[in-house]
Design a protein around this nucleic acid. Structure first.
Length: 656
RNA sequence: GCCGGAGUGGCGCAGUGGUAGCGCAACCGCCUUGUAAGCGGUAGGUCGUCGGUUCGAACCCGACCUCCGGCUCCA
């Protein structure tokens, strides 16, 4: 028998021909697959001369993906056993889990998940092996004659498969077609699926999984295609890891801004107003006002001029700007009055253009920077509105810089630095940038190729200069120009699109904007759109989730609650509160007839940054006792010191 | 917009055909207390809306509204 030379985990070895990756990687049960060269392989992979083999552990990123993909197969098998008419879509691993799509006559009910879960447990216990087999296109077509969606995927095989549909590459890669058979202990075939692999050795290697939810999803991601029933699940390398994941989900749910908005009495969404329309209660109003005040001040410091524009306009304006043909669907339908159609504005730029155009402009005025809190209304589809992060009425902190073309690059760099600094002031400091460009094939974009190229290059350079990661978003530009968007990661790692900076050479042409240059000639400015928060509503929602409702003192609706040990101490605390109030601190004294412990509980649940307690001991010393949100306490602090500590934390915008 | 789930006092929930109940919050009273719920009492709901089935509907059926989970979309 001939021998092969291979490398295992970096060291060279000689093995007999026909040896599998699993055999050289040993008995470790946590090794569920092999990396051979750049490819992930089953442990059953038969080694070839020169192969470099490394183990893939189940708790590695690749290992979890393989686990989840295999669990998706088990789920599909269970579904087809319980619902024989179910036809298979695709079933890839995704972040934290997997899904599989099915075409079924009756949509799944949440209760069905329990049945499917039970059958899956049996399959896992059975220890079916995943067995790979290469097939020709024709063989695959014959074997999968009853699976129309799989047949369609076979047709897609090849280099295009990877982008053909989200997840389709998990079924068919660029190479040969393979089918994975699930074989029972006696070697009989339990189930099979067209799949690229690799997979776990057996279903027994699935330590922990849970089916999460059912939903509909369009076949291959297109609204024009039929909807399939998608079942989402999660799978982990251990029961503990699964438990932790479920715990993280529960924690994330606790910081849901919709829930906290009600609990902390910040805002609500009255049915009477309609979908996607929020009202801010007094406490939410405080946070919103602090945000607005700070952002307005910073804009003015950065050379912006604060302006104001109305909420509605005759339609001509949106024709001039070029928006109407593209966005009529997302604008509220017009009101017909006095022979004209009036639209609620969905964007502020056209109105700022009118301010620019209201008189002749000199090159000496540029960059001319206009800023406002502009209320815009967008008729978002009914299924997409979501709390404060996707609304139908919102306030943009919208600004437009009108610059000479040669000033554009500097202005954009300046804006980017401004935006990032502002987000940091609000406690967000983990960013990456996205560069949205034109898709040459699409009709949606206006302007010449050269203009797009110049604009894109300027944005790209400015973005690169920041040193942050830059992700390409081809086709994501606005119709009038490319944009940089700032994506911020919140406290639990989710990313949110916040600020955008857009380069626009089209609207200045549409509005015939001009300035007079030093040589007396008339020149066309470039306008640069920028929103720092994106919208106040969304940003507030993101902040609520980022801080889990525990705002830093400068943003907290109530910064200090005074808690008397008994009623006798109320006047003393009222005096302390007055001194804080003099310094601009938002303070309340809890004079309810609850007991002190209950008052602490109430303030704690309201996530008030500072509780100041006072009893006989404190009164005697002219002191107060701190209780912080963490539960930590500091007793007998002289009132003057306590006031200073609080005032300083607010002024420094620190979190406590 | 599409598919599924769901709407019961301010909030969280129970109540599957015989004219609504609990906890918290609110209000009133007692208690006067040192770091997360003291005790007692009172009030509050045409059960999302409209229509239908039935002797009778929170409960069954239909339409609409709103929310939730996804998909698609997101200037």
């Amino acid at each position: 028998m001939s021998e092969l030379v291979i490398t295992v985990d970096g060291s060279e070895r000689r093995v007999a021909a026909g040896t599998t990756a699993g055999e050289v990687l040993g008995e470790d049960r946590s090794v569920v697959a092999a990396r051979v060269g750049d490819e992930l392989r089953d442990l059953a992979y038969v080694l070839a001369e020169g192969d470099a083999v490394e183990p893939v552990a189940i708790d590695s990123e690749d290992g979890r993906a393989i686990l989840r993909h295999s669990t998706a197969h088990v789920m599909a098998q269970a579904v087809q056993e319980l619902y024989p008419q179910a036809r298979l879509g695709i079933g890839p691993p995704v972040e934290n889990g997997f899904y599989y799509d099915f075409d079924v006559s009756e949509p799944f009910h949440p209760d069905d998940l329990a049945r499917i879960d039970k059958r899956m447990q049996q399959i896992v216990k059975e220890g079916q092996s995943f067995s790979r087999r290469v097939v020709s296109d024709d063989e695959a077509r014959t074997e999968l004659a009853g699976e129309p969606y799989k047949l369609e995927l076979i047709g897609l095989k090849g280099p295009g498969a990877a982008d053909a549909a989200d997840g389709a590459s998990a079924e068919v890669g660029a190479g040969e077609l393979t089918i994975y058979d699930n074989l029972r202990k006696d070697g009989s075939l339990a189930w099979k699926d067209l799949c690229r692999g690799p997979h776990l050795p057996t279903t027994r290697n699935i330590p922990a999984f849970k089916l999460m939810r059912v939903a509909a999803a369009y076949w291959r991601g297109s609204e024009k295609n039929p909807q399939l029933q998608r079942i989402y699940g999660t799978a982990w390398e251990s029961r503990d890891a699964l438990k932790e994941h479920l715990h993280r989900l529960a924690e994330a749910e606790k910081r849901d801004h919709r829930r906290l908005g009600a609990e902390l009495d910040l805002y609500s969404f009255p049915d009477e107003l309609g979908s996607g329309l929020a009202v801010f209660h007094p406490k939410g109003g405080v946070v919103k006002r602090e945000m607005e005040d700070y952002v307005r001040r910073r804009h003015i410091e950065e050379g912006f001029q604060y302006v104001g524009t109305p909420h509605i306009s005759k339609e001509g304006l949106f024709h001039t700007s070029g928006h109407l043909p593209y966005y009529a669907d997302t604008m509220f339908p017009p009101m017909h009055m006095e022979g004209a159609d009036y639209y609620l504005k969905a964007m502020n730029c056209p109105m700022h253009n009118l301010i620019y155009r209201s008189r002749g402009r000199s090159y000496r005025e540029l960059p001319l920077r206009l800023f406002e809190f502009g209320s815009v209304y967008r008729f978002e589809k009914s299924g997409v509105v979501h709390g404060l992060t996707r609304v139908r009425g919102m306030t943009q902190d919208d600004s437009h810089s009108y610059v000479a073309p040669e000033q554009a690059a500097d202005e954009i760099k300046h804006l980017l630095a401004f935006v990032l600094g502002l987000l940091k002031d609000f406690g967000l400091d983990d960013f990456y940038l996205e560069l949205s460009t034109r898709d040459a094939a699409s009709e949606k974009f206006i302007g010449s190729e050269e203009e797009w190229e110049v604009a894109t290059k300027i944005l790209e350079e400015a973005a690169t200069d920041t040193g942050l990661d830059l992700v390409a978003d081809p086709g994501g530009a606005a119709f009038y120009g490319p944009k940089i968007s700032v994506q911020a990661r919140d406290a639990i790692g989710r990313t949110w699109q916040m600020s955008t900076i857009q380069y626009d050479f089209n609207q200045p042409a549409g509005f015939d904007l001009e300035y007079q240059a030093a040589d007396g000639s008339r020149q066309r400015p470039v306008m640069i759109h920028s929103a720092k928060f994106g919208s106040i509503e969304r940003f507030l929602g993101v902040l609520v989730e980022h801080y889990a409702g525990a705002f830093p003192p400068w943003l907290a609706p109530v910064q200090v609650v005074g808690i008397p040990i008994t009623d006798e101490h109320v006047p003393y605390l009222a005096d302390v509160a007055a001194r804080l109030r003099e310094r601009g601190i938002r303070v309340e004294v809890d004079t309810s007839d609850d007991r002190m412990q209950k008052k602490i509980r109430t303030a704690q649940k309201q996530k008030v940054p500072y509780m100041l307690l006072a009893g006989d001991e404190d009164v005697a010393k002219g002191a107060v006792s701190f209780r912080y949100r963490s539960g930590e306490q500091k007793n007998g602090v002289p009132v003057e010191e306590a006031v200073e500590e609080i005032v300083r934390a607010v002024a420094d915008r620190v979190q406590v």
